[in-house]
Write a protein that binds this DNA or RNA. Structure first.
Length: 575
DNA sequence: GCCGTTTTCGGCCCGACTGTTTTCAGTCG
């Protein structure tokens, strides 16, 4: 039983209850329960098994009992009974744009549709258009949505959409009728993957700006275009929304559309307690005492809160912290002094030691850690002992030519199946630092994988742990690890954990960093760069670190070179 | 189904857009 299973079951119940047309607030309670399970800071599975789920906000009497039954027996009768009333494939219908519970229910009850394949067939036969509440246009839209679903993924990597976001923002900025513009939504919150892009403008000509937005060269098709809102699909498949508001409304709209939904719900209920109602256009209710609102921070201030950075707006305690002046002072990109974990042509990188060093210097860094693969990764042209020794010498030679910069000699050494390392200690001692990572044998049990990784961290020469779960976002599932145990082990062994900020990894996940921080575990923001361009991903890494509530002092590579060298020369037990 | 410095009962965020309607339901964010 895992935390994800518990939360997933509650989510599924919510969906099933929607299909049954249950009370929407009950449905929401299940969703919020799922969220509470995911966010709970502790061993929720053990607590559910022991029926010890007291005082968790969002989990009341009924959910407590259900979670206990599920955790202790592996199944939940309530859930199974609900499930048996609908066909398996019905769930995938919810992924089709434009289909919600009511329509899915109607399709199922009237036409017996229980899968995507059924739906496609019924549309092509013209049966869907004949249903009450449906029509010819709806049928066409469903067919389009199905085609879209086949050709594109519905989520995109944060790092991959950055260029198109910058381009569109720039165009909006230059529009003669636009006074302010911004990107909002999950992009602004730095979620590792985004479903769509949300843009916002302040203008006196909303309808015109909306229309012009749909004419951008990046636009493939128009989903909707109204007086104040437009929705389009871009050439690369991502959906892109624009909201046009007045200058006075802009901060409210920016706050609102930045989300998250959970953060906003919490913020609004806080407002309600103060006799205020908050929407995307402003405050209503007793506004006589309110100061003027010019920007987002004025909204938070009006509610008695410190300004909350967008990355933190996930309703994971930030509102409470803001009310008590307890928000952390988050790390900024300019705090970084260097970075670790980069590859060169020696293994599977695209640039030489010198080229990587030049780029790091251009980025204003004082040091760059080189960590090519080790010999057990032949697919990545991993270095054997001789080649690594040669690289150490080469780095020493190059360092003679730099005045205020230093290449650090390291290795991304494979953690073998039993937790031993690909190089012996004598060789590891020759290095400035060592990143230990799992690159093969992914199919171990959670316990075995966790022990394997912990054993590696116990090695005196392992400076940091590389990509904790090995996930490749949107592509490969993480290998199973017990994050809590790994964090505890890192704290005990004084091993740094890497925040691998390659856009496809973002590993360790942001949801775990606050816990690691509180246990005194240091983070290193590492690009895992295989080319000079990818060194720039440290910027994304900083945003992800903010999402994990990390401060400057929590991140190892904010330290200047001198301090880093001193740290690396100190035995782990004394760090 | 959850929750409580208005409440142990009665609320629970709310507006834009579309399509099918003829005044509104459904979906989305």
């Amino acid at each position: 039983m895992t935390r994800e299973t518990l939360a997933g079951t509650l989510e599924e119940i919510a969906l099933l209850l929607e299909l049954k047309g249950e009370n929407p607030f009950k449905i929401r309670a299940y969703r919020q329960g799922a969220e509470a399970v995911l966010n709970y800071d502790g061993d929720i599975v053990a607590k559910a098994t022991a029926d010890d789920l007291k005082d968790i906000k969002g989990i009341g009497e009924a959910l407590r009992e259900k979670l206990h039954e599920l955790a202790s027996t592996g199944v939940l009768k309530f859930h199974q009974d609900l499930r048996s009333q609908f066909p398996e494939g019905l769930f995938e219908l919810f992924d089709v744009q434009g289909l919600g519970p009511k329509k899915v229910k109607a399709l199922h009850e009237s036409l017996g549709i229980g899968s995507i394949a059924d739906l496609k067939q019924a549309c092509e036969a013209g049966k869907v258009a004949e249903l009450a509440g449906f029509g010819a246009k709806t049928q066409v839209k469903i067919l389009e949505a199905l085609a879209l679903r086949e050709s594109f993924a519905d989520r995109f990597l944060l790092g991959m959409v950055t260029p198109v976001v910058e381009t569109i923002l720039e165009t909006l900025r230059q529009h003669p009728d636009v006074s302010r513009s911004a990107v909002a939504g999950s992009y602004r919150r730095a979620k590792e993957t985004v479903h769509d892009l949300d843009f916002l403008v302040a203008t006196k000509e909303p309808a015109q700006v909306c229309k012009d937005f749909t004419l951008l060269p990046e636009v493939k098709s128009i989903i909707a275009c109204g007086e104040t809102k437009a929705s389009v699909r871009l050439n690369d498949g991502i959906q892109c929304d624009l909201r046009a508001v007045s200058n006075e409304q802009f901060p409210f709209a920016l706050q609102y559309f930045s989300g998250s939904k959970e953060h906003n719900v919490a913020l609004r209920s806080l407002a309600l307690k103060q006799g205020l109602s908050l929407n995307e256009y402003g405050f209503t209710g007793d506004t006589s005492e309110l100061p003027p609102i010019h920007e987002e921070k004025d909204i938070y201030a009006a509610l008695g809160l410190d300004y909350i950075a967008p990355e933190m707006r996930e309703n994971r305690g930030e509102i409470e912290a803001a009310a008590e002046n307890q928000l952390p002072k988050l790390i900024e990109l300019e705090n970084l002094r260097g970075t670790f974990h980069s590859h060169t042509t020696a293994s599977d990188g695209h640039h030489t030691l010198e080229e990587m060093a030049e780029e790091a210097i251009d980025l204003g860094l004082q040091y760059l850690g080189i960590s090519d693969h080790s010999k057990s990764s032949p697919q990545a042209n991993g270095l054997n002992e001789q080649r690594l020794m040669a690289q150490i010498k080469e780095i020493a030679e190059l360092n003679k030519g730099y005045e205020k910069f230093r290449l650090l000699a390291g290795s991304e050494v494979d953690i073998l199946k039993d937790g031993s390392l690909d190089f012996d200690d004598e060789l590891l001692m020759q290095l400035d630092f060592c990143v230990a990572s799992v690159h093969g044998v992914f199919n171990l049990s959670e316990d075995e994988m966790t022990r394997r990784i912990c054993r590696a961290m116990e090695n005196e020469h392992v400076t940091m742990l590389g990509h904790v779960t090995g996930r490749v976002l949107l592509k490969r599932e993480p290998y199973q690890v017990d994050h809590a145990r790994i964090i505890d082990c890192a704290a005990e062994t004084r091993t740094i954990i890497e925040l691998n900020c390659s856009p496809k990894r973002m590993d360790m996940d942001w949801r775990w960093w606050k816990r690691a921080r509180d246990k005194g575990v240091l983070c290193s923001i590492n690009p895992d760069a295989h080319s000079i361009a990818r060194l720039h991903h440290i910027g994304l890494g900083v945003r992800m670190a903010k999402k994990g509530w990390l401060r400057r002092q929590d991140v190892f590579n904010t330290r200047p070179l001198e301090d880093v060298l001193k740290f690396l020369a100190t035995p782990k037990s004394k760090r």
